[in-house]
């Protein structure tokens, strides 16, 4: 049986070469040619500089921006520490955090009545969720419109145009890309500096 040692070592090294170097490098080469934008992070620019990735959420705290969801990635939307809160449903910490966020939300959006869209008060799985639900955007429209000095309906239509619907009508959920929405917000209704 010891004769199997030779093949064991040789095949491991050979397949390492094939699947560990040739395969990923070849895929890298091809995708850099075919899909350079996507392969390099779908980065977006603002004012000639990289302002982020359209796939990666950012922290928005200012009242003039639509806010993202709470993030458990590092101190919030940290690209080097993706992850969720990992709080279980009976966690005191989860309840405390949500309670604090609810209070903050109600303070910031006094016009909002009724239940708060859950996604806006809960941390995402990746901590980098670029989206909020259309309801969560709607809940913030009044606040943003007020700060931006724009009519709520116009903000609403911006939200609508930033809303992606379900793929093919049934995959996933309708969602609003917060970074893209805030970028178009900055374009159309710049904050007075």
């Amino acid at each position: 049986m010891l004769k199997e040692i030779g093949p064991a070592i040789k095949i491991t090294l050979l397949l390492t070469l094939l699947t560990g170097l040739i395969y990923p490098l070849a895929v890298t080469g091809v995708t850099q040619i075919l899909f350079p934008h996507q392969a390099n992070g779908s980065l977006v620019t603002a004012g000639g500089k990289f302002a982020g990735s359209e796939l990666i959420g950012q922290t928005f705290a200012k009242p003039g921006y639509f806010h993202s969801r709470p993030s458990a990635a590092g101190s919030g939307y940290d690209g080097t520490a993706s992850g969720g809160s990992n709080f279980g449903p009976t966690s005191q910490k989860l309840t405390d955090r949500v309670k604090a966020d609810v209070d903050k939300f109600q303070k910031e959006n006094p016009g909002h009545t009724g239940p708060i869209p859950a996604d806006l008060m809960t941390a995402s799985a990746s901590g980098l969720d670029p989206h909020i639900s259309p309801d969560a955007a709607e809940a913030q429209v009044d606040r943003v419109a007020k700060v931006r000095g724009a009519p709520a309906d116009q903000i609403r239509s911006l939200v609508a145009s930033a809303t992606e619907s379900r793929t093919m009508g049934f995959l996933g959920e309708p969602r609003v890309n917060v970074l893209k929405l805030n970028l178009s917000l900055d374009n159309r209704y710049p904050l007075s500096r």
């Binding site: 969801r69 969720g84 809160s85 990992n86 709080f87 449903p89 989860l94 309840t95 949500v98 309670k99 609810v102 109600q106 009724g114 239940p115 708060i116 869209p117 859950a118 996604d119 008060m121 809960t122 941390a123 995402s124 799985a125 990746s126 969720d129 989206h131 909020i132 639900s133 309801d135 969560a136 996933g172 959920e173 969602r175």
Partner: peptide, 16 residues
Amino acid sequence: LGLDSTSGNMEGKEVR
């Protein structure tokens, strides 16, 4: 605590 019950459990989930 005031969260919308129709959204389901969104803690630890992605909106998309």
